[in-house]
Computed example of a mutant assay.
Amino acid sequence: MRALLVVNPAATTTSARTRDVLIHALASEMKLDAVTTEYRGHARDLARRAAESDDIELVVALGGDGTVNEVVNGLLHHGPDPEGLPRLAVVPGGSTNVFARALGLPNDAVEATGAILDALSTNSDRTIGLGLASGTPGTEDKSVPARWFTFCAGYGFDAGVIGRVEQQRERGKRSTHSLYVRQVVRQLLDEPHRRHGRITLERPGDDPVEDLVVSIVCNTAPWTYLGNRPVYASPGASFDTALDVLGLSRLSTPAVARYATQLLMSTPERGPQGKHALTLHDQTDFTLHSKVPLPFQMDGDHLGVRTSVTFTGVRRALRVIV
């Protein structure tokens, strides 16, 4: 088997020495081409070339959720083809690794590599669904092509938090869970539409849902992790179905306390709920609109602002090693 290993050298939880060990372990079992990414979007370009090649059967992403997202978008550049495209394997190297953990892989890179090699020896894989989003730019001039996401997207409040975190990281701050919590608080204090949101959700055959402040789109559960604690925004979300949505129409102080507690106490059976909470399951097509440009994120990557985002849930989009 010939495989491509895409290595993010900036992965926060793996050292150069650990990466060398992982490369050696994988190379002992297959013909491996290991390439280190050099710029934003490089992982996508590498995966696209692998998808267009005739002999690469497997692409391994070594990095965090951002690296995985780039690799997936490269593999699916010409659209889903589970039987014709190389399979995907993920070695977690980021701070949270939601996608890898949602697949059931260990959060430790060495242990995950062992699990991947075991799965390859028994030809164990699964075909998963993914989300596809295309947006209308806000204040940006450039066009916004459709983009795939693996585990979540957000429009409005939570994307604003992601944007604040990225600003802090550009200033040299480490990506930690405490950093995210601090930015949640700051985003909440600065949110001008806490009591009357600007987001409208539209889907075929149903009345629009207006005045949402928070809109979180999930392709799997959990939505994220706080350390080792899973957080479930949409407990019913699954790689085997289309997309789930959690929308909140109010972020007053009592509402914040209630929904924050529900998120922290969420389980695979129960997530946030209440009169200001909208929950939708297994949605294949819907659009989120806003009268003003709002921040947008996918798989934890802030993508600027949008006035509209259209989502499609695509079942059976890609084969992954598990």
Rank of each mutant, 00 (worst) to 15 (best):
50 A>M: 12
20 D>R: 06
76 L>V: 13
42 H>F: 02
51 A>D: 03
21 V>R: 08
41 G>Y: 01
75 L>M: 14
83 E>I: 00
60 V>F: 12
89 A>S: 13
72 V>F: 00
51 A>P: 01
85 L>W: 03
48 R>K: 13
36 T>H: 07
44 R>Y: 03
85 L>C: 09
87 R>V: 01
24 H>K: 15
70 E>Q: 11
67 T>Y: 01
76 L>A: 14
58 L>E: 07
88 L>C: 12
16 A>C: 07
44 R>G: 01
41 G>M: 02
21 V>P: 00
59 V>S: 12
65 D>M: 06
32 L>H: 04
33 D>Y: 00
81 D>Y: 11
75 L>E: 11
52 E>D: 13
38 E>F: 06
29 E>K: 15
36 T>I: 03
88 L>K: 12
78 H>V: 03
79 G>W: 08
53 S>K: 00
38 E>L: 11
60 V>S: 11
86 P>W: 02
71 V>A: 10
24 H>D: 15
22 L>M: 09
47 A>M: 08
67 T>S: 04
19 R>E: 05
46 L>P: 00
64 G>K: 00
20 D>K: 05
90 V>F: 02
40 R>S: 13
90 V>P: 02
66 G>I: 14
68 V>Y: 04
25 A>N: 08
63 G>Q: 04
80 P>C: 12
80 P>V: 11
40 R>I: 06
39 Y>M: 10
75 L>W: 12
85 L>E: 10
40 R>Q: 12
78 H>P: 01
72 V>R: 03
64 G>L: 01
30 M>H: 11
32 L>M: 09
55 D>A: 02
35 V>N: 03
25 A>H: 10
51 A>R: 00
93 G>K: 05
75 L>F: 14
92 P>V: 12
95 S>Y: 11
59 V>N: 11
36 T>K: 04
63 G>N: 05
81 D>F: 11
79 G>C: 01
33 D>H: 08
16 A>T: 13
91 V>H: 00
57 E>Y: 02
36 T>F: 05
78 H>F: 05
30 M>V: 09
72 V>L: 07
18 T>G: 08
81 D>A: 15
71 V>K: 06
16 A>R: 08
47 A>S: 02
42 H>A: 01
28 S>Y: 10
45 D>C: 07
